[in-house]
Every structure is written in C-alpha cells, then in structure tokens.
Nucleic acid binder design. Structure first.
Lengths: 338, 338
DNA sequence: GTGAAAGCGCTAACAA
DNA sequence: TTGTTAGCGCTTTCAC
C-alpha cells in the first residue's frame, strides 16, 4: 500500500506538499500540484482516514440512530441521510435502538469510540438521558422532536398538526363525524404529540372525541390489526380511523379485509408517514406525508452547521419539517346508515 | 477527553500496562490490572479506535454492500449482519450499489479509505470486475453467488433449487399444470439462477414450460404488476405464478386484486425471500424462504475466518445457504375449469 | 511483569 | 511557495 511518503518521493516533493495538494490548499504551485496528482494516480493512492482523523480530530463520520429498522420509514430515512452525507464527503454509522435504553447506550458508546463528528438521533423522543454522554463529550447532536438544553444540540420540530388537521378536515368534509385514532406507544414522545395534535384538530373541526376510539397501539402492523379488532368489539363504531403511522394503518387495512369490512366504502383509513409502500396497499393508502428526505436534509444541515461552523453563535438551532395530506383510495364518504 | 496517558498516570503505571490490560494480555499482574480498570472507570475512558487502527492495521470495521435498500429484503439482511458484527466487536459500513457499477466503484473506494477489515458483497452477482480493487488490496471479501478466483475471496452459494422445487411440487400436487415464472432482471446473476432452477424444477416434475409464461421483470412491486398484466393479455393463461422474489409477488397480488382475479381461488401465487411483510399480505403469501439471518451469519463467518485466521490454508471458502417453502394463503387448487 | 521508546500515516505549525 | 518536524493516541518490540 502506497503512503504519503511513496507519493512524495515519486513526485519528488515533500510530504507536506502532497498533503496540501490533496487538501486543496491554495499555496501549492500548479507545477508541483500536477506532479503530485500524477503520482497519486499512478500509485492509485488514497489517504488513510484513520491517520487523518487522529491528527485532525475530525473523522468525517456521522452517526444516525433510528428507532426500529423494521419499520420501512427508517430504512428510507437512512438512505436519504446516507446519500446526502456521502455527497458531502461523510460516511455514516447506523444503529437501531429498538426502543431499548440499554441498546441506545451501547450505540452511543460505539459512536463515541469511532469519534463521530455528529449524531442524528432519530428515535423520536423515546429516551434522552442517555445522550448526556454525547453532550458531555461535546459531540454535535440533532434530535427529532426533542429539545436538549445544550449549545451543541439542535432540534428538528415536526409539524404534525398541519397534516393531521388536513386529514381530519378531509374526513369532515367527506361527511365523517365519528373518527377514531390509533395512537403510537406512549413512551414515544412523537406518538404523544401526534395524539395531541389529533385532539386539537378534532376540536378545531368541532368534532367530539369518543374516549374508546382513541387506542394506544405500537406503530406496528400487528398493533394496527389489534387496534382495529378492539374497535370492532364496540357497540358504537367510528366511520373513519386516523392512524399514528402507516404500519398501523396497513394493519387496519389487513384486519378490515379479513373482517369483511370494506375500505373505503364501510370505513375510511388514514395513515401517517407515507412510506413507499403506502402507494401500493389495497386500496392505496390516504396518508399524511412526512418527507424522509426533508427530515434527512434537516438533520444533516443541523449537524453540518455545528461541525463546520461551531463558533457562530447565531446559527439556527431549530429546524421545522412539515407534513401534508396525500389523498389516495382509502377514504371516501361514510356509509349511508352512519 | 482522557487518553491512555491520563489513565496510566492515575493508575500509576506505564501506558504499555494500560494497553495490555485493555487488550486482555495475560502478562499483567492482577494488582496492576485492578488499578488500571479502576482508573478507566473513574475517567470513563475508552480507547481511540483510529489510533488503534493506525498502529495495528486492523479497523474492526466491516463493509456490507447491498443491491437496493428499498427492497425490504436488504434492510432485514443488514440488520442481521449488524447484529452479529456488533456482538463480535465489529462496526459496519453499509452502502447500496443501486445496480450501478459507478456507484459500486465508489462504495468500494470509500470502504478502502476507511480500511475495512472485510467486505460482504450482497449484490447477488450484478457486477464483479469492480471488486478487483478489493482483491488487489488484499481485503477479505465474501460474495453471494459468485466465485472470485482469489485466496481472499469466499462465496456463499444459495441453494434456490430445493425451495423452488418444493414450490413447483406443491403446485403440482395441488393440481396445477400451467405455471408461469416472473423472473428478475437478467443482469443479476441470482435472477438467472432462479429462473434456471425453476426450469429444472418444472422438468423434474414433468411439467412443460410455456415460453410466454416466463417473463423478465425487475424484482420490484411495480414490475410484478406489469408482469401480471402481460400474462393477462395472453389467450392462454397460467393457473399459478412463481415469482423470483417477494416484491414481484406482492405486485402480482396487487394487480390481480385490481383486475378482479381472486388469489388463491382463481390464481395461485408464490414468492421468494419471505420478507417480514409476506406474512401480512392479502392473502398471506406462500413463499420460498431465504433466511436473512442464515445469510448474514454465513457472510460474517466467512469474513471472520479470513480476517482472524488468514494463514490457515484449509479454511472453508464456500458456504451454503438453503431455501425452503413456507405455505401460507396464496396457493390452492386451480379453478375447476382450468 | 513492567516500562521506555519507536513508529503507524497523516496534518499543521514553523522555518526557510 | 516549499520543506522540516512535532505530535495525534495507540500497540508492540525490546530491555530490564
């Protein structure tokens, strides 16, 4: 393996000149720069990132911690994040916390060991005390939906309300009055927010909420099926269901079909996320879009500002990602009798 | 940030002793070892992996390159691989090639820069010449379904045949004689293998293959829909479809529903992969399981042998992962008229 | 058993 | 402009 010295001697310059050339320093004359690049090409040389990191203190590694990789939302988010990161010369380290604080602690520890330049914590508010480690070591960090009182931490605020309001209004306009909500697990900050936003939206629309129609599920397909079943057992049933995420909604679709309940004729269903698959469910899912690429972009930008311009005191510390309704086939007017 | 020297001085030993203690060298006396661990705990110290890598030449980083992260098969594979890797003290670097050789080249380059100890190339045979880079730099490598003539390369052979044969026999036993195959893209080595195995299985079962019933799709849901549509346009239609992967099968399910073709009453459908979602399709998908965890385990083991025991000339260089039929709801007897 | 010291490949401060 | 040199934090001889 050629190293910087090999290049230097082939190009007949000092190693400092090679380093400068590679790093685009303006101090290198064209003449030498050309010689260096040629030697680099000839040797098929590239720098050792570990040596670089060791001396510069910067790894050009970014961590991203997601909640649960089996929910399609997260691979899609990771993909966007990776794409942006790589395009900007960063590499990423991915971990799932699986909603387990011990696992999260371990993730953080491993990222610290690898000297990540920053970490995007996309666990949507499930557990934050563990992150002290990062804060304490002065690692830039960006959180979804959670404020950390630290100059190195930024926050991405998710505007669920506009999307959820659009969803409720859409149902309302269609003629629905009886709307249920299948919530996410209450230990998730975002799940609570979504539920609260649903309540506000209902209130704004002048619609009453039935206590039994707001059910805590777990953001999985199975959970959605269970939530639907619970609703079915009720004497008074809703004509529409808004779900805290798409997987839950897909579970509802699945269970409704099995129960002979037709969507959207008998029941309207709305999801949240707009995962790629939502377009292909039966019927195609009407859902509230939470753009993964917007989120990934916001997370990356937040970290980059902190990493590359750490002294600027006026930098943006809060980012907003909005949501919007995507109307597809799982909603329509309520059945005549209702 | 505490470094090895901080620990050494707190424990009143040399940095060599600290290093030995951390690395579990048997040469350290219990007395000093205890002091060192206490200092480590007290300082919340952990070693700098970059410094370690620089001097030892080993990064404890493993690369994994997958074909397309939007196919759920791959996140599931990556998750298994990561789990095994982390449990064994490795970190992973993930990249998708998106079936683009230029992207693959770039992935390989980035992994080389980060000095990965090994790379699992899970692209299923789409492009191999690019991998010369790795071979040339003596990086252990494991490929799915492709043999590379190099002492550092191992291969994971996938036994599709047993699963596909079970699928065909299952359909045959049910009474099907007219079976179609929706293949994957022909530039994929694995897609060609699967198709060939289907042909063998049909032949073994004494069943004839209609040319027009073997269609090249692209392993996506959309592609499956298109494949189904193409079959529908035919005068003579099959009573069953075997698909090269689950996404294709899900597309068929989707398109069949839209066309009013009932599965499994009018048409039987079989997928391949058994992604998590297959259990929840409507109807639940009968499919050929290709275990992600078996595959991940084989890939990891292959790399580990190469990394940790590179001189052993008798080591295993080929691994076999088998497939098996999972019977669910998308298959039944053919319609009476057929 | 333990410690001193050399160096892994690179960047950056300083000299020229 | 270019080169010389001192480390970055660690592992690993080699002495003791």
């Amino acid at each position: 393996m050629p190293d910087i010295r090999t290049v230097a001697s082939l190009a007949k310059v000092s190693i400092a000149t090679v380093s400068r050339t590679i790093n685009g320093s303006p101090l290198v004359s064209e003449r030498l720069s050309k010689r260096v690049w040629q030697a680099i090409k000839q040797l098929n040389y590239f720098p050792n990132t570990h040596a670089r990191t060791l001396v510069s203190g910067r790894s050009r590694l970014l961590g991203i911690i997601v909640e649960n990789i089996t929910n399609p939302f997260f691979p899609e988010l990771v993909q966007s994040f990776e794409e942006i990161a790589v395009r900007n010369g960063y590499e990423i380290l991915v971990s799932s916390s699986n909603s387990d604080p011990a696992v999260l602690t371990n993730c953080v520890r491993r990222m610290l060991e690898r000297k990540v330049d920053g970490v995007a914590v996309m666990t949507f508010g499930e557990e934050e005390s563990v992150l002290d480690q990062l804060v304490h070591r002065n690692v830039p960090i960006v959180l979804a939906e959670f404020r950390l009182e630290d100059p190195k931490a930024s926050t991405i605020l998710l505007d669920y309300l506009s999307g959820i309001r659009a969803a409720v209004n859409h149902l309302h306009a269609l003629g629905h009055r009886s709307i249920a909500f299948l919530a996410g697990p209450h230990f998730l900050h975002s799940a609570v927010t979504r539920e609260n936003d649903f309540r506000s939206a209902m209130q704004s629309a002048g619609l009453a909420i039935q206590k039994k129609w707001v059910i805590e599920c777990d953001h999985t397909l199975k959970g959605g099926m269970a939530g639907f079943a619970q609703l079915q057992r009720l004497a008074a049933r809703p004509t529409a269901i808004v779900c805290s995420n798409d997987m839950t909604a897909i579970g509802v679709l699945r269970a409704a079909y099995a129960a002979g309940v037709r969507v959207p004729q008998d029941l309207s269903v709305i999801g949240l996320d707009d995962i790629d698959f939502a377009e292909y469910t039966l019927p195609p899912l009407t859902t509230i879009r939470l753009s993964r690429s917007d989120l990934a972009r916001a997370a990356f930008d937040a970290l980059r500002v902190q990493i590359e311009d750490p002294v600027n005191p006026r930098m943006l510390r809060e980012f907003l990602v909005s949501t919007s309704l995507v109307e597809r086939g799982s909603t329509s007017t309520p059945p005549a009798g209702a």
